[in-house]
């Protein structure tokens, strides 16, 4: 059986709600039920776009994703398969190459010029990058810096004043 990184719809803190989905990002056996206990909870995904605190009228809303990047990387490294949705989310921060890209000459040229960070050696640095790739790079770089600073390298900090 294969391990999957997938979403599991869970009842929120106030109990199960219609029209108010909230998902755990979990690692589970592919053939196990959605609601069964997963092997590991890697984070959560709130698919309902919310206004950021202090936002003005017409500001863009945000969808919140919390994920343990180092654990996700580890499980991808040992062959866990992300589901389509999780693949899309993880691609945004450069943990996997995007599964679907807009087709056409422009995209082909862009892909020739830029490979995604997962396919690059640690030493090489990209030149001109797309928005997504830049974002992913910064996230990866940031987390790596973070690990170095913390020391143990196993946990990401959750408390801003801890580390």
């Amino acid at each position: 059986m294969v391990l999957r990184l997938r979403l599991a719809r869970v009842p929120g803190p106030g109990g199960a709600k219609r029209h108010r989905p909230i998902y755990n990002i979990v690692l589970a056996q592919a053939r196990s039920a959605r609601d069964s206990k997963p092997m590991e909870v890697l984070g959560m995904y709130d698919p309902v776009p919310k206004e950021t605190p202090g936002a003005k009228e017409g500001d863009r809303k945000t969808k919140e994703i919390k994920v343990d990047v180092s654990r996700a990387k580890y499980w991808l490294g040992v062959g866990a398969q992300p589901s389509n949705t999780v693949w899309r989310l993880l691609a945004m921060i450069g943990l996997v190459e995007p599964r679907y890209l807009p087709t056409g000459q422009q995209t082909q040229n862009a892909l020739k010029a830029v490979r995604f960070p997962v396919h690059q050696n640690a030493g090489t640095s990209g030149k001109t990058r797309g928005e997504k790739a830049a974002a992913s790079k910064s996230m990866k770089g940031n987390t790596m810096v973070g690990k170095g600073e913390i020391g143990a390298g196993t946990t990401s900090p959750m408390n801003p004043n801890e580390a």
Partner: peptide, 29 residues
Amino acid sequence: KRKQWERRTQVTVPGRRWDFKFQDISAEK
């Protein structure tokens, strides 16, 4: 420290209609 932590663990990816805010957390808590 809070600013540093945000810079280290947060990234906002602009999507077509909304932004995706990623927060690196620890699953070991």
